[in-house]
C-alpha cells in the first residue's frame, strides 16, 4: 500500500463515516458526499498519472461531470425539502418512519 493509496482511502472513509454518523443537516450530508467524490477524483487521476495511462486520464473528468450532476440533484432535493418540511434538518424527515 502506497501513502497515496492510504490517503485517498482514509479520506473516502472519513467522508463515508461523516455521512453515516453525523446527520444534523441535509447540507452536511451532501458536503460529505462531495468530499467522497473529491477523494475519488484524486484516486482516479493519480492512478492514471502513476501508471502513465494516457487513455484513462479522461475518466476523472467524466467522474467530475457525474458528481456535479449528483451534487446538483442533491441541492435540488435540498430546496424541495426546504419547501415541504420548512428546514433542512434531518430530524424533520420523519413522516415515513415505522
Amino acid at each position: 500500500m502506497t501513502p497515496v493509496h492510504f490517503t485517498f482511502s482514509s479520506a473516502f472513509m472519513l467522508g463515508l463515516t461523516g455521512l453515516t454518523f453525523h446527520r444534523t443537516h441535509l447540507l452536511s450530508a451532501l458536503l460529505c458526499l462531495e468530499g467522497m467524490m473529491l477523494s475519488l477524483f484524486v484516486a482516479l487521476s493519480l492512478w492514471a498519472l502513476q501508471l502513465s495511462s494516457i487513455s484513462f486520464s479522461a475518466s476523472p473528468l467524466l467522474l467530475l461531470a457525474f458528481s456535479a450532476c449528483e451534487a446538483s440533484a442533491g441541492l435540488a432535493l435540498l430546496v424541495a425539502t426546504a419547501r415541504t418540511h420548512g428546514s433542512d434538518r434531518m430530524q424533520s424527515l420523519n413522516l415515513l418512519q415505522c
Binding site: T7, A11, H22, L27, S28
Partner: peptide, 30 residues
C-alpha cells in the same frame, strides 16, 4: 507528505459535523 496530510485534515473537518459553512471551508481546503 504535507499535502497528503492536508487532504486528510480537510476531510476530517468535513466529516466531524460542524455547521455547513465550516464543512464547505474544509471542502475548499481539501
Amino acid at each position: 507528505s504535507l499535502l497528503l496530510l492536508g487532504l486528510v485534515l480537510g476531510l476530517i473537518v468535513v466529516a466531524s459535523n460542524p455547521s455547513p459553512y465550516f464543512a464547505a471551508l474544509g471542502l475548499v481546503v481539501a
